[in-house]
């Protein structure tokens, strides 16, 4: 991974930006909330995603959650091996367990997301 997660969505996705490409995953906080993950459904390369809309799903035994795209654009790379290595989400949610890379149609969308401090505060709030 070339860059670290720098921005976060309230729906617990992280974004690492490299030029106009955003790498997207879910945060450690989200992984802890979900527990007992069994399946992740990621889009195919070429899929257009829209900020705030679901791009995939993640399942635990008796729950399923949408994964929301933090930015709009086209999926140019997918972490396909993740589906068979869900333990990566526990071990290294912010790097090895990245999910998709999106070529952003509007890189300024990133600015609307939370920074690390604001996200930490948001999690603090949700935990109560």
């Amino acid at each position: 991974m070339s860059s670290q997660p720098s921005r976060f969505a309230k729906t617990h996705e992280w974004v690492a930006v490299d030029g106009d490409v955003a790498t997207v995953g879910i945060t450690e906080f989200a992984v802890k909330l979900l527990s007992d993950l069994v399946f992740v459904d990621l889009p195919k390369i070429g899929k257009k995603v829209t900020a705030g809309e679901p791009f995939g799903e993640i399942e635990s035994v008796k729950h399923v959650s949408d994964l929301y795209a933090p930015v709009s654009g086209e999926v140019i790379e997918v972490n396909t091996p993740l589906a068979n290595n869900l333990e990566w989400l526990q071990q290294d949610p912010h790097a090895k367990a990245w999910m998709i890379k999106v070529k952003m149609s509007d890189p300024t969308q990133v600015n609307a997301l939370l920074d690390a401090a604001a996200y930490a505060a948001h999690c603090e709030n949700e935990a109560h």
Binding site: V38, F39, E59, S60, V61, K62, H63, V64
Partner: peptide, 9 residues
């Protein structure tokens, strides 16, 4: 794979 089903999804 109950997450496919109506009582969850």
């Amino acid at each position: 794979l109950q997450a496919r089903e109506q009582h969850i999804r």
